[in-house]
């Protein structure tokens, strides 16, 4: 039986109103995620993936940022219509977040205990002792040895990997139904990266939460995600099952991302990079945003912005190459 999605993002637009113009950081993003599923969001820096996550959490600083359009449905209710207070009771409770840099994401002047207990007590009516017991349980869960004694430690007394485990424990404090992981392994050593990914996979199996995995690393996507959305310049350009994406990538930008992964089998002197730079989000080119960097761009690509379409079942692409073939008129 098909499960109901727990989180649906529909046509999300988050813009930043700066002195030098409107930055369309997120410009029409839609996706959904079901309980227990892992959805990957991939893209370069500035493609809007983190802003998408922050928009779901309603953590965009206003001013200059503003969610100008769209809906974020969590269990059928639109989060964008919630009051600040209602949002606070959801954040860290039903939807929680793990950030990129564990070195700076924990408050350096408070003990881990204080940071965990305050989260638990914000959302649960429990005594301090019960909250401490819960914190110990969580640190055990994320694999921090001698958890009870480590509670009294400050963040700087942990290594980077351990801090990210603490961050994950913190995010799991109140059994969230959705965990948004914003580049959770980017700042870590490769060996630690693998450990953290394994940890997230194990926790998901045990706790059954949905994970939105934001990353620029296709390796991470291949390892943990069920479905994946590729973003470029604030827009989704391709969206499909992860095996489908790796086996049959459709969008030229996805091709570019794939060929810039080093391969041990056919060593090259130079990796193939996508030429050019991402466009200025204040002043997007006419037509397809990726056209100026696209090897396959046609004249039309500079004029018409392609629609995001399901060209084959469960595989969306935003590219005119496929429109041509199907001869769809827009």
């Amino acid at each position: 039986m098909e499960q109901e999605p727990i989180l649906q993002v529909e046509n999300l637009h988050t813009h930043f109103f700066t002195k030098s113009g409107v930055v369309k950081a997120v410009d029409g993003v839609s996706f959904d995620i079901k309980p227990g599923e892992t959805l990957g969001i991939v893209g370069e820096s500035g493609s809007g993936k983190s802003i998408t996550a922050m928009s779901i959490m309603r953590l965009i600083k206003d001013p200059p940022g503003k969610i100008v359009d769209g809906r974020v449905l969590f269990k059928g209710e639109n989060l964008l219509e919630k009051s600040k207070k209602e949002m606070r009771s959801i954040r860290g409770n039903q939807i929680s977040m793990v950030f990129q840099d564990p070195m700076t994401s924990l408050n350096p002047v408070f003990t881990v205990e204080k940071q965990m207990v305050e989260t638990i007590q914000t959302h649960r009516k429990v005594s301090k002792k019960e909250a401490i017991d819960r914190a110990v349980e969580l640190l055990d869960l994320v694999g921090i040895p001698s958890a009870r004694s480590r509670l009294k430690s400050y963040p700087h007394e942990f290594s980077g990997g351990m801090r990210q485990r603490v961050m994950i424990a913190l995010a799991l404090s109140c059994d969230p139904e959705v965990l948004i992981a914003d580049e959770p392994t980017t700042a870590l050593d490769v060996t630690i990266q693998a450990q953290i990914l394994e940890l997230l996979e194990r926790l998901q199996k045990e706790l059954g939460m949905a994970i939105v995995m934001i990353t620029h690393d296709l390796g991470v996507v291949a390892e943990v995600c069920d479905r994946v959305m590729v973003m470029y310049a604030g827009k989704p350009v391709e969206f499909s099952e992860v095996t489908e994406l790796f086996d049959h990538p459709k969008h030229p930008y996805t091709w570019g991302l794939m060929s810039s992964i080093p391969q041990i089998k056919n060593r090259q002197d130079r990796l193939e990079a996508i030429s050019g730079l991402p466009p200025d989000l204040r002043d997007l080119p006419q037509g397809c945003s990726f056209a100026p960097r696209c090897k396959h761009a046609m004249d039309k690509c500079h004029e018409v912005d392609p629609a995001f379409r399901e060209h084959i079942p469960a595989h969306h692409v935003r590219c005119l190459l496929y429109e041509e073939k199907e001869e769809v008129t827009t």
């Binding site: 954040r91 929680s96 950030f99 994401s105 408050n107 305050e118 989260t119 914000t122 913190l170």
Partner: peptide, 9 residues
Amino acid sequence: RTADAKGLA
């Protein structure tokens, strides 16, 4: 940002 994301007042 973490403190905000935890839902603190």
